[in-house]
Design a protein around this nucleic acid. Structure first.
Length: 229
DNA sequence: GCGTGATCATGA
DNA sequence: TCATGATCACGC
């Protein structure tokens, strides 16, 4: 059984090597080897899997508005998958800028920068599998291809245009083909400064950008199609 | 209080 | 069954 690294990976190759070691291992084994307890359920431990993998891969920017692997410019995303390897949940990307983002170009956007290079790590999330027995899958180091890039850009521009013109309160999770905007806060009472439909300052629930499961499914499906050959 | 790590819980 | 809207913990 390996032990968690004490420093960030030097390069992509080292990061991938670390990830390959984890493939097939269970959450229980990784938690034990890292000296922590495996939660009985995730109701009060929602980010636990992500933080466990951060530790095992040597991520450096935990809970900062930076890529997880700062020097490499790589974002780590653990994705809960069903028995067929399909994502069970959407994937959080970043906060929606409610006051400063208007007029920003796609290329400079937080979404574009975060998704430029992503290490996807699938993790079994079937409710029937006890948490300690759930296995880590094989990781995929990914950058958007032209089609993915186009879809993301199109959604981002459309959503930010809505935020700028109609106001954030008009945007729901139903907008956006692959990217959506949903609440992202401690609870529904949390408030953040924003602009209303008429441009007047308002207070509203903080929002985040999320990738729809179908988008992530396409990424993983291609990976496994290749891996199976 | 905010951003990051996400999953939960409910209604359609 | 599935997606949306709500929620929980942590570090700073």
């Amino acid at each position: 059984m390996p032990t968690p690294p004490t420093r960030p990976p030097r390069d992509e190759e080292e990061l991938l090597a670390r990830a390959r070691v984890l493939a097939g291992l269970t959450l229980g084994a990784l938690a034990e080897a890292a000296g922590e307890a495996t939660p009985a359920d995730f109701r009060r431990h929602k980010g636990w899997v992500g933080q466990l993998l951060e530790r095992w891969l040597g991520a450096s920017a935990a809970s900062l508005a930076e890529p997880d692997f700062q020097t490499l410019g790589i974002e780590l995303k653990t994705v809960p998958v069903d028995r067929l390897g399909r994502p069970r949940e959407s994937t959080y990307v970043c906060t929606v800028p409610l006051e400063s983002g208007h007029g920003e170009r796609w290329e400079e956007s937080w979404v574009c920068r975060k998704l430029g290079r992503v290490l996807w790590v699938p993790v079994e999330a079937e409710p029937t599998i006890p948490i300690p027995e759930r296995r880590v899958g094989s990781a995929l180091l990914w950058s958007p291809d032209p089609e993915a890039f186009r879809l993301l850009r199109q959604d981002w521009e459309e959503l930010m245009e809505m935020v700028a013109t109609g106001g954030i309160e008009q945007v729901t999770a139903r907008h956006g083909q692959v990217l959506q905007i949903r609440p992202k806060a401690a609870d529904s009472r949390a408030r953040r400064g924003a602009h209303g439909a008429d441009g007047a300052p308002i207070r509203t629930n903080p929002r985040g950008f999320y990738l729809r499961p179908g988008f992530t499914a396409t990424i993983l499906r291609r990976h496994y199609a290749v891996a199976a050959c």
